[in-house]
Amino acid sequence: MKKIFYQLTSNPMSLLGVILVSIVILSAIFADFITPFPEHRGAIVDFSNFNQPPHWPNIFGTDLVGRDLFTRIIYAYRISLILGFVVLVISVPIGVSIGLVAGYMGGWTETILMRITDVFLSIPPLVLAMSVMGLLEPSLFNGMMAVTIMWWPWYTRLVYNLTRSETQEGYVLAAEIIGASKFHIIFREILPNCWASIITKMALDLGFVILIAASLSFLGLGVQAPTPDLGSMVAEGGNYLPDSWWLVIFPALAILIAVFGFNLLGDALREILGGEE
């Protein structure tokens, strides 16, 4: 653990990743304390102070109904992160289990499971999510479901390939010869050796889930007003460019920081965890 921390902070790019991710996560957690107008996350109208460029105390300016943009961005982070975590918490166990079973068992089990996975993988993620959202009512919950459905097969692919190579290792053969159960071999022997790659991918994916969620809401298919969301902020603000530039620039920067931070962190983790013996 100490070693991982040392390696994370010794490389400038990974250090930047750690800092950006920490900023995003901490601000989302402590949003109630660091935002000047927590009540602006809801449906509030303040026409006396609408569409103002950055000024004190609205450091990022205000939106078309007079709400503080900084407050809304921080709360949007909270929503995005919750969405990201929920998506991963549901899709990772499903994807990982299928990948493990297919990779270890081989034969017909493998063929059936992997062909199903391929079907999902062959549809472009955003298209799949959009069609699901088109069928259902646009809402935060349905958005999560849509993203989850398109996300698990990527973990299946990853873990399937890992399992295929781990199965060749001597420790798997050793467990088989001792007489350990298949369940034990899959979840107690092979899975622990896949965690490093899974965690790395999860770090990378948090950024992508945020991006996908933003894309969906940009198209009007994700989180609905008045809940703050980075994608819909960019979409709405786009109509008022270039005069009200702050309406687009700050939410867009917020997306960039989150995605960039999680990417750097993921890359750093891949290098560190992958480089272990």
Binding site: E169, G170, Y171, A174, G179, P192
Partner: peptide, 18 residues
């Protein structure tokens, strides 16, 4: 299975690293 056991050539891979 218990009666016939096995020691492999490569001690590096024969033990689960985790």
């Amino acid at each position: 299975k218990k009666q016939i056991q096995f020691v492999q050539q490569n001690p590096l891979s024969a033990l689960n690293p985790k």
